[in-house]
Amino acid sequence: MVDFTLWDIFRNLLLAARWTVLLSLIAFIGGGLVGLALLIARIAKLRFADRLVAGYVQLFQGTPLLMQLFLAYFGLALLGWDVSAWLAAGLALTLYTSAFLAEIWRGCVAAIPRGQWEASQSLALSFGEQLRYVILPQAVRIAIPPTVGFLVQVIKGTALASVIGFMELTKVGKTIANATLNPFLVFTCVALMYFLLCYPVSRYAKSLERKLHVAH
């Protein structure tokens, strides 16, 4: 049996952490774009959009992320598509993130007083101009802290992608634990990695919150 030094464990976990970071970024950027589209469809009062988006949000908020990953991985395979763990994990996490962000952001837009809509409407601004120049700049201020806070949930959520064989931090940790027969040490290191990823993000969210509070 191979002897693992603590450095070996750390080195391998660090390499695996890259995929955790990458998967988080995909989820966040993809989810952010889809979430923004859902948000705009909803506030533009497009036909049926309100109900459809509300249903979509309920669906992803009301089922475990683990099931969403399984369904993306095995469900798409059933339909005859050859899905890699990458694609399935990226897709499931993107949809999951988009649902939560659409809901978080909807609350932020709803927090902008109706008078802002009415004043900009009275000035003959189009719907797009109202959003772009009046509503979203104010909503973004409110949205940044909860959005960054949610990023932490997404980073931790990527751990679940290990169950469909995605080689990220948790999956690699499991593999090393099996090889070293020292799961306590290895998973302590894994937990530490997650903490090192998440803690700065939480701190950043807190400092943003303070800064935006002071600004206006």
Binding site: P113, G115, Q116, E118, A119, S120, S122, L123, A124, L125, E129, Y133, V134, P137, Q138, R141, H216
Partner: peptide, 28 residues
């Protein structure tokens, strides 16, 4: 052709007074 002034002012808080005034003329 219709201007409106509200009870609650409804200035855009993220813009300066000058920007509040210039927004609609530049866009519309």
């Amino acid at each position: 052709h219709v201007g409106m002034i509200f009870q609650s002012f409804n200035l855009f808080p993220h813009l300066t007074a000058g920007q509040n005034i210039m927004l609609a003329p530049t866009l519309v």
